[in-house]
């Protein structure tokens, strides 16, 4: 005799599973801090596999490119030989320009060096994975809580701000990039006279160019705020996550809102997120462990 199926019982069970799942989705969203031993165990198991695939993939990519582009490389080589001769002639002139550039760099150093950063310990980390889904802009690095990394730690590259840590397992950490619309940064725009205009910087990855892997940034200002192309954007230190004066990008254009009340500045990040391979995680005291 077969088992009797109770349709009401099945309906209640299905409803309960859906309700529990929806609650769980709600409670474990981006930025929430919940214990995830299964995820950490999976990370530990799959990280070596991912690293191996990455290294094999990089090796294949480099070799295949060299083989298939042999003719192009040969033609380029001949062209470059000609250019070398010409460049030798230009070398003397360039040396003078290099000296001028070095002087400019010395002047510029003060702008891009932040004394607030020197207080913090920097943890060097290598990117081992990028988010496998197309829904968020996150990366995974090979340093985790056993190296002192904790949620909300700011992440920088050699040129400027990258994002913040959103989850840390013992051996790896997930970093939400500033390009993602989910993360916002308290920022200031500094014009060439040194005056600062404060605002909130948002990633446009979510808004208009989610399919654009590089993404971009934007900030909104009042109509009367003085913001121009070429102005530099730094973190303001407000919000409690990012220290002050970390370079973020350069204003590339300003659009006026149709209502005439606001204007939006497009900001090009100074960090090249596509070619990013290593980052520094700042060990800021007071982050959530």
């Amino acid at each position: 005799m077969g088992k009797k199926i109770n349709p009401m019982g099945i309906a209640v069970l299905v409803f309960a599973v859906i309700l529990i799942t929806l609650t769980s989705i709600r409670l474990t969203g981006l930025g929430s801090d919940f214990p995830n031993p299964v995820g950490k165990a999976l990370d530990r198991i799959l990280s070596p596999v991912e690293r191996t695939i990455w290294s094999i993939g990089d090796g294949i990519k480099d070799n295949v490119r060299a083989i298939f582009s042999f003719r192009t490389v040969k033609a380029e080589n001949e062209e470059l030989r000609k250019q070398v001769e010409q460049l030798k002639g230009d070398n003397l002139q360039l040396k003078q320009q290099v000296l001028a550039a070095l002087r400019y760099q010395e002047l510029d150093k003060d702008v891009f060096q932040s004394p607030t950063l020197e207080k913090y310990e920097k943890i060097g980390a290598t990117i081992v994975n990028r988010n496998p889904t197309a829904w968020y802009q996150t990366i995974t690095v090979n340093k985790g809580s056993k190296d002192g990394v904790k949620a909300d730690d700011p992440v920088i590259a050699n040129l400027g701000l990258v994002g913040k840590v959103v989850a840390a397992s013992s051996a790896t950490s997930d970093i939400l990039l500033i390009l993602d619309g989910e993360g916002q940064v308290g920022a200031l725009v500094r014009d060439n006279l040194g005056n600062a205009v404060f605002g909130i910087l948002k990633g446009t990855y979510k808004k208009g160019s989610r399919l654009n892997a590089t993404g971009s940034l934007e900030m909104e200002f009042k109509q009367e705020d003085e913001v121009n192309s070429g102005d530099l954007v730094f973190t303001s230190g407000f919000g409690g996550v990012f220290p002050k004066d970390i370079p973020i990008g350069v204003v590339t254009g300003v659009r006026v809102d149709p209502t005439g009340l606001l204007k939006t500045a497009n900001i090009e990040p100074i960090v090249n997120f596509d070619s990013l391979e290593e980052v520094y995680i700042l060990d800021v005291p007071g982050g959530s462990r």
């Binding site: 999976l42 695939i53 990519k61 496998p132 889904t133 399919l211």
Partner: peptide
């Protein structure tokens, strides 16, 4: 689970990878 974040990173179309 692992291939979309690794191998398909090389074959993504404008950030789109298979599920």
């Amino acid at each position: 689970l692992t291939l979309p974040g690794t191998l398909f990173q090389y074959w993504s179309w404008g950030g789109i990878k298979p599920d």
